[in-house]
Amino acid sequence: MNAPDRSAPDPHGFLRGRERWRPVEALPWLIAIGAFFALPDYMILGTQVITMIIFALSLDLILGYAGIVSLGHAAYFGAGAYATGMLSAHLGWGEPISGLLFGGAVAGLVGFVSGWVLLRYHGLTLLMLTLATAIMLQELANVLEVWTGGFDGLLGMEFTPLFGLFENDLWGHAYYWYALAVLAICFLFARRLVHSAFGRTLVGIRENTRRMHAIGSPVHWRLVTVYTASATMAGLAGALFAEINAYVTLDVLSFARSGAVLIVLILGGTGRLYGAFVGATVYVILEDELAKASPEFWEFGVGLVLVLVVLFFRGGLLGGLDSAARRLKEARS
């Protein structure tokens, strides 16, 4: 093999190399498929993990790439969940795939409108406005009791079998594959997006907004675009949640949920897509195990793990793995 010519780095090869699929990227999918056969009794938990991955992935698009910190991302998860839920409960539309798309579209619309206003602001102001948006939506859902069921939650959803064949069974088997398929589509989209010219400009905005203005970038539109895409994806996760449980409460719009998704992403690592996979898996399983061990104090355990990860792994669990691998490589050479 020829050693690459050090005096002339290859810009095209370098950029293509970044975008290329690596063998290790097959791992999460193999694990997901393997889990179905190895742990058939845990598929309801597995579906929860997948829903959380989609939600965290949507947050990574705005937080990890564009640098928009949000404390109210549940607004879009909840918008999707209620849209799909109400479509079924009030209008009797129970076909799951179109219901899911409807939930995503409504959340995307909410994301576009709120983003258009919110993203004119920066820093702490923006942070507070994201928080306020979710709180306002939650209050709205509380007041519009006739449609949302208010505090008691939205009941009466009925969903038809997937493709007319696969019922949402007690073990969650069919919906596991359904959720996995939705995740695969969302992931492919997100991966394309972050490696596109648009995705690079988002990183530019994250790194230096002022300079992006100075090279003629329509910064506001770029942010509104990614915010809308992110809200749509969060809405798909919420719609999936509604279809799986056939029950939606005000909890889908809660601050706790906005906080949880932020924790998931920071735990896994931001700005790397796969951080959502690792973070969501660890978080949901940890929550499940700790809640079994100590139903009252499980949140203490989650908090402790988060503190330890933030203190000892820069860039989350995946970031920690990265630097460990690098150190190992350096030690060898």
Partner: peptide, 15 residues
């Protein structure tokens, strides 16, 4: 890329 107005392209790889 911004000057050439490529920055809005969402799906084509940057390379």
């Amino acid at each position: 890329a911004e000057r050439r107005r490529r920055g809005a392209n969402l799906l084509q790889p940057f390379s």
